[in-house]
Design a protein around this nucleic acid. Structure first.
Lengths: 167, 167
DNA sequence: TCCTGATAGTATCAATTGCAACTATATGTC
DNA sequence: GACATATAGTTGCAATTGATACTATCAGGA
C-alpha cells in the first residue's frame, strides 16, 4: 500500500493536538518517563540497561543476539548496554565454548540484587498506571495498541520497500 | 502517593514482553517511526521541526513560548527547531515590537508549500494506522490512553516532588 | 533612577540513539 | 585446505535529546 496524498479534507485546519500520532507520542513519553525514572534515579540504569537486565533476570544465561530477539533493541544498543552493565559489575560476560563469536551473559550477584530490588518498584508503577482501568479496559487497550502497532509496522515495511526499489 | 515496593507477587517470572510500559514503548516507537519517516524522508524534517511547522501552519504568527505551550516540547527544543527551520528557509523570525524579548515566527512561502505538501501525507498515515479500528474503538483507545497518561503524569509529579524535598 | 525578580530565548556540555563500517569467528563448497 | 559467505559483536561518527547555565529584556517597586 503506497503512501500517496489522497487525504485532502480539512487542509485548512490541521491541529497538532488532535493528530493521532502526536497523542501517541505524548502518551508514550509520559508512561516511559514514569517508569524509567524509577530505575534511573535509584541505579542510574538506562532503558537499554534495564531491558537487558530484565531479560536476563534470574537464572538466564543468554547471548547478546538472544537478547536482541527478545527486547526489540538492535545489537548496537545491546552491546552498549552490556558494556555499561559490566562496568557497573551488574553483569558478567563469558565466551561460548562451542561458538567463540557468542557471548554468554548473566547477571552477577550484585546485578541480581538490583534486579530483585527494582522489580517490585516497576510493578508498582505499572499498577499505578492502570489503577483506574478495569481489567476489561486494560485488555481492550492492549488489543487496540497491538492492532495499531501492526498497522504501523506494515507501513514501515512498505516504506522501506519503496525506498529500496526506488519507486 | 509514594512509590514503595508493595508489589511482591510473581517475582520469579518477570517477563519484559508482557510488561505494560514496555508494550507502550514498542507501540509508540512503531507509530512514531511510521509517521516521522514521511516528513523526514521527503524534507529532512525532525520531529521538533515538523511539530513547529504544524503549529504555525497557515496564517499563524506565534512566539517561541506560544509554540512551547501547544507542542509539549520544551523551549530548548523549540529554539533549536526554529534555528534549523530558518536555515532551511521554511520559517521567518521577526522581533516583537512591543516586547523585544519575544520572537514572531511564521512560515515562509517555501515553508508553507512544504506544509501543504506534507499534511495530506501524514493524514494518510494517520488514517492507515487506524483503518481497521471502528470509530468507537478509536475513541476508546484515545480515552484509555488519556487516562493512563494522566496517571503517568501524576506519578512523575509525585516523584519530582519527593526528589525536591529529599524524602 | 536604580534594584530586584521574572520572562524569552540561546548556548553549552553530557548522555542516548542510529547508521554504517569493521573485526573475528564459523560454515559450506570446491 | 582455501575461498566465499554468513553471523556475532564492536567501534566510530553524526544527529537528537536533556539538563543547566547564561544573556537580554521587561515590569514593579523603593
Amino acid at each position: 500500500m503506497m503512501v500517496t496524498a489522497n487525504n485532502t479534507m480539512d487542509k485548512e485546519d490541521f491541529q497538532l493536538g488532535s493528530f493521532f500520532p502526536y497523542k501517541v507520542r505524548v502518551f508514550g513519553t509520559a508512561v516511559s518517563t514514569a517508569v524509567s525514572s524509577v530505575y534511573r534515579e535509584r541505579y542510574g540504569l538506562s532503558v537499554s540497561e534495564w531491558r537487558t537486565m530484565a531479560i536476563l533476570g534470574r537464572n538466564q544465561a543468554l547471548s547478546a543476539s538472544e537478547i536482541v530477539e527478545r527486547s526489540s533493541m538492535d545489537k548496537v544498543n545491546v552491546s552498549r548496554a552490556v558494556q555499561a552493565l559490566r562496568k557497573k559489575e551488574f553483569l558478567r560476560r563469558d565466551i561460548d565454548g562451542e561458538d567463540r563469536r557468542k557471548s554468554v551473559l548473566r547477571l552477577t550477584e550484585k546485578g541480581l540484587a538490583v534486579f530483585n530490588d527494582v522489580i517490585p518498584l516497576v510493578r508498582d508503577v505499572e499498577a499505578a498506571l492502570t489503577e483506574n482501568l478495569s481489567a476489561e479496559e486494560q485488555a481492550v487497550l492492549l488489543t487496540l495498541m497491538e492492532k495499531v502497532q501492526k498497522n504501523a509496522e506494515a507501513l514501515i515495511g512498505d516504506m522501506s520497500a519503496e525506498a529500496a526499489n526506488g519507486s
